[in-house]
Design a protein around this nucleic acid. Structure first.
Lengths: 158, 158
DNA sequence: TTCATATGGTCAACGACGTTGACCATATGG
DNA sequence: CCATATGGTCAACGTCGTTGACCATATGAA
């Protein structure tokens, strides 16, 4: 007793976050594959959410995901290729090309939301629903506090 | 009141983890740059920790970081190139090439630990030390629970 | 109207980083 | 002494993001 060994050292938060994130993302995509969605790339998830409530645009996507317009443009192209997004007409501004979910995209989104709910439910089983909500609340608070009250992009925009 | 808008929907845990992780990692590297460490790549951090308490090896590195031996080999080469690691002789097993911290690597590690402590202290200021430890405990518990009690690699080994 | 400037979006070249596959060197147990 | 496992490297490739150059449309001011 009293000796500080490796295990006594607290695991760095960064490591915990990295592990937790990959757990969820890998779990999601593993289950998607099990259910026949074999061409869903990890980056698709957040883009689907962005288009959930209405058309997005390349620039919006870029801001949400904290990447350049060029990268967002490639991502959108890949998702259009895969049949999850379609470019829609009808923007007031002639420069923007609205992106919206295709029928298949809506089906994927529904599946993603269902699987994701399962994953969070499993976390709740593991540590208790109360602890899970506490975790979400603490984490949200910490992030908001260090960003002046705004929820930042998935990756901070550089 | 009563209307469910975007902000009422709970932010997915995965998104929170992704943001939190990048916050810490980017914060660390930004401050390293400020202090003159300009050639530190994000992947170096966990490798430094691996070599903290004694020599590692490419295979150990690979296991810790959840990547292939080949990728770990490249990472080690980059860190040797940059002068943070040295290959040491003196393994019982003639196949392994022990990796240990150079003097410069030890100085970097000390700086990283100091900055990292600052970052966690800022989180503690933001949400309270108690809440931060609670967060760490809940998260650790959740991860361990879904991995049969072992702390997994940063990225799950495939 | 017209021009300067800002903004949405694309194309092309490149770089960082990981993967697979083939291969060599050393251990280790019949 | 050989079969097999394990530590490590080299080479080719894929994914995904970046920078830089560029085009098209808006917008405000002269």
């Amino acid at each position: 007793m009293g000796r500080v060994n490796d295990e006594d050292r607290q695991t760095p938060l960064a490591r915990l976050f990295a592990i937790a994130y990959r757990d969820l993302v890998d779990g999601l995509h593993a289950r998607l594959r099990e259910r026949g969605w074999t061409d869903v790339r990890p980056a698709f998830g957040f883009a689907l959410l962005a288009a959930r409530d209405g058309p997005t645009s390349v620039t919006e996507l870029a801001a949400l995901m904290g990447m350049t317009k060029q990268a967002a443009s490639k991502l959108a192209a890949a998702m259009i290729d895969a049949g999850y997004l379609v470019t829609a007409a009808g923007a007031d501004d002639g420069r923007v090309r609205p992106l919206r979910l295709s029928a298949r995209g809506r089906r994927l989104l529904a599946t993603v939301e269902q699987i994701y709910a399962e994953l969070e439910a499993e976390w709740a089983d593991a540590i208790g629903a109360g602890a899970l909500e506490r975790l979400r609340r603490d984490l949200t608070r910490a992030i908001l506090a260090s960003h002046g009250g705004d929820m930042p992009a998935v990756r901070p925009t550089l």
